[in-house]
Amino acid sequence: MTSIRAFALRDTESVIALWQSTGLTRSWNNPHLDIQRKLTVQPELFLVAVDADDIVGTVMAGYDGHRGWLYYLASDPARRGQGIGRMLVTAAENALLELGCPKVQLMVRPDNEDVLGFYDSLGYERFQTTATGKRLISD
């Protein structure tokens, strides 16, 4: 039975292995540092899906007072289609709602076209924007 709970430090290596198996890690992001940083800001919005002792999914959420964001949504590739991603998104949305968050957004990399149908099925709307960014700290 899969359940959702807050991330715990003991989950670190399993979470990173899941992110690597789903292609979420990038050479320019250190996942250990991403986890450390998240644990200093709204750690209750870092959720894992667990089946027995196995980490089978993750999502990081954040709320800046204007809108919420979802990051690192992942589910075990061998468990796709079992509703894990949907459970995680719902749990993150509910946690954001409890904080008074009126809107949630996420970014999808251009090479991850397959996931857009999943987000469509959850009621997420596609819109055309250009995302820009600036690195303040090099990992």
Score class of each variant (00 low, 15 high):
S27L: 15
S27N: 15
S27A: 15
W28A: 13
W28V: 13
N29A: 14
N30W: 05
N30Y: 06
P31W: 03
P31V: 08
P31K: 08
P31S: 08
H32L: 14
H32A: 10
H32I: 12
H32T: 12
L33A: 12
L33D: 06
L33R: 12
L33M: 10
L33E: 11
D34K: 00
Q36Y: 00
Q36S: 09
Q36D: 07
R37D: 13
R37A: 12
R37H: 12
K38I: 00
K38C: 01
K38F: 00
L39G: 06
L39E: 09
L39Q: 15
T40Y: 02
T40D: 12
T40N: 14
V41M: 03
V41S: 09
V41E: 03
Q42A: 10
Q42N: 04
Q42Y: 01
Q42M: 07
Q42G: 02
Q42K: 02
P43Y: 06
P43V: 08
P43L: 09
E44H: 14
E44Q: 15
E44M: 07
E44F: 08
L45Y: 03
L45I: 04
F46S: 05
F46E: 01
L47W: 07
L47I: 09
L47G: 08
L47N: 07
V48F: 04
V48M: 08
V48C: 15
V48N: 06
A49Y: 10
V50S: 09
V50T: 11
V50W: 00
D51T: 10
D51G: 02
D51S: 12
D51K: 04
A52F: 01
A52E: 14
D53G: 09
D53Y: 01
D53H: 08
D53P: 03
D54H: 06
D54I: 06
D54S: 12
I55E: 01
I55R: 01
I55M: 02
I55V: 15
V56P: 06
V56W: 03
V56A: 11
V56K: 07
G57P: 12
G57T: 13
G57V: 11
G57W: 10
G57F: 10
T58W: 10
T58F: 12
V59Q: 06
V59I: 15
V59R: 06
M60L: 13
M60Y: 02
M60C: 08
A61C: 12
A61N: 07
A61Y: 07
G62S: 14
G62I: 01
G62D: 05
Y63W: 14
Y63F: 15
Y63P: 01
D64I: 07
D64M: 05
D64E: 06
